[in-house]
Design a protein around this nucleic acid. Structure first.
Lengths: 332, 332
DNA sequence: GTTATAAATGTAAGCGCTTACATTTAATGT
DNA sequence: ACATTAAATGTAAGCGCTTACATTTATAAC
């Protein structure tokens, strides 16, 4: 690989001049610019961005930490972020945290040590304190789907309480009185919030939340399957099941079928997230829309604005969920 | 951020010694090692991996280029790769190529310029020549889902001809004689191969391929929808539709419903890829399994073996598809 | 033709590490 | 006690760039 030195020699100019035409910031005469670019072409020169970033302390790349690289939820998020950055010449370095404290920390440290100019974090396991401490460091970051009051201006959130409320209210309005609930892991804030909204709606309808009808899942399909099976075995009856996300809802649907329940007649099921396949399951799943792609874009805009001082559309920090009514809820 | 220099000063040793304990390769006495690690802890020292990688010309990170960051296909692939690397202390830098020649090149160049030790490429738009030229460079790479004879030892492939054959044979065995086909973009090799396998099966059953029953899609859901709509409007009848991937199949299913066709009675539909939601659509989609997660792992193993000289399970380059029979094909 | 000023270019010091080589220290054999 | 060798540590060059500052060259004003 040719270096800047060889280019400068071939073009008959100094290193600094070559650097200047690369970053076209300073004054370079047209004639020498031509000479230099010609030399670059001839040598097939590509700047070593590692060296650039060491010397300039700016890497034009931002770090993204997600829990998983796969799944219908993270895909649109990564995609929204990447799309926003691509047009601005910023690159993405992605690491996975797997909802594990140690791995999340490792990921964050890797991204920082790679000279990322900014970070977008979707972290779950790491503590508030850790993040607050991190915020004193030199690498700015924005948080998706996590609220820390000390860092509230950089938390991009969905109103999950409202989302849980919306879902339950819809089911209640269809006449259901006994509603089972498969939650996410209750140590996660979003899982807690969704359940809280659920309870609020129940209270509004003067219904009590029945702990027997709660199953704590882990946001994955299998736990939806297991959850419904378990709920079905206990004695308290229910006509509807609300799941804290779509993947568990889909697992529950499979379970329902194995249990011989016809959907939605014998059991209404409600999801959350509105991931793309919910339109395609049978019956089409009613759910709550999580505008994760937009939230990803917003996080990217935050970085563009705070790290690179770019003009962006106005920043928004709280997003609202929306009810998506399809065919998985029957009228009672 | 503390640098190695400050650590060395605090510990009262030289830079080199600090470096040695970090890379624990050379001989360092226990006493000084203790002193150094203590100093590191006290300063909260984190090595700057950019500087490491500039100095050592090894970054312990490998670049991954995918077409899209989202979608049911790339998720498991990225995940398989990341899982393999995580345990080996290698990091992943991911870029998206969007099936566009310019962007694929940009992505590759970015990854190289970031000192990636090796590359895993899922590229579609870039030419064979470009890749052959790239292979002369200093950054080793492995190709997923692409065959170039000059580079055959580093092409990790699914036998798509066989996959197309398997799908068609199954449909034919169920008694269908008039089969429509929605292909991928025929400039892509995998799309071509699947169609070729399809035709082989037809020939085996002494049936001619009817060009009127071919619609060229783009592997995305919408084109499946449009495809079936278009096929339905022309006059040649058909009882089955084979789609070159699951997303188009799902689009076609939606289209079929809008057209008032009952599935699978009035129209049998077959997919390809076996992405995870195919089990959940209605009727459950028969398809062809694409072991993309395993292929991702294999690509990672290739890098581990060829770039980092690690011991790996034996490398395999050609993978075989498998028929997945569910409920979307009716007997004629 | 001078001089003042701006534009263009060059020089050289880092950025934070690794590593070949040199030097010092400790361990061993006699 | 001394030489021999191995282990531990230090010195300094360099990875490929950026950039503050210095210097040269062109431009304009008189």
């Amino acid at each position: 690989m040719a270096t800047i030195y060889e280019v400068s020699k071939l073009a008959g100019v100094s290193l600094a001049t070559v650097s200047r035409v690369m970053n076209n910031n300073a004054n370079v005469s047209d004639a020498t610019r031509k000479k230099v670019t010609a030399a670059m072409d001839e040598l097939g020169y590509r700047p070593n961005s590692i060296a650039q970033s060491l010397a300039s302390n700016c890497s034009n790349s931002v770090g993204l930490l997600v829990s998983e690289l796969q799944g219908p939820f993270y895909g649109p998020m990564m995609s929204g972020i990447e799309n926003t950055f691509r047009n601005q010449g910023k690159h993405l370095i992605i690491a996975a945290g797997h909802s594990d404290e140690e791995r999340e920390k490792q990921g964050i440290e890797f991204l920082i040590s790679r000279n990322c100019d900014g970070l977008i974090l979707h972290v779950e396991a790491v503590s508030d304190d850790y993040l607050i401490k991190l915020s004193k460091g030199r690498t700015p970051f924005v948080l998706i789907n996590r609220y820390i009051s000390e860092l509230s201006d950089r938390c991009i959130l969905l109103n999950n309480i409202n989302g849980g409320y919306l879902a339950a209210k819809h089911v209640l309005e269809q006449g259901h009185k006994n509603i089972a609930y498969i939650s996410g892991p209750l140590w996660k804030q979003d899982a807690k919030d969704r359940l809280e909204g659920h309870k609020q709606a129940l209270a509004e309808f003067n219904l009590e939340f029945d702990e027997n009808l709660l199953f704590q899942g882990d946001f994955m399909e299998a736990s939806g399957y297991e959850g419904l099976k378990a709920l079905h075995q206990q004695t308290h009856p229910f006509t509807a099941l609300i799941c804290a996300n779509d993947e568990m809802a889909v697992g529950a649907m499979a379970s329902a079928r194995d249990l011989g329940l016809t959907l939605p007649k014998q059991l209404s099921i409600m999801g959350y997230d509105n991931v793309f396949f919910t339109r395609h399951v049978y019956p089409q799943l009613s759910t709550v829309n999580y505008p994760i792609n937009e939230m990803g874009r917003m996080a990217a805009d935050w970085v563009l604005s705070h790290v690179y001082q770019k003009q962006t559309p106005p920043l928004q920090t709280l997003f609202e969920p929306e009810l998506v009514i399809r065919h998985s809820i029957s009228r009672q």
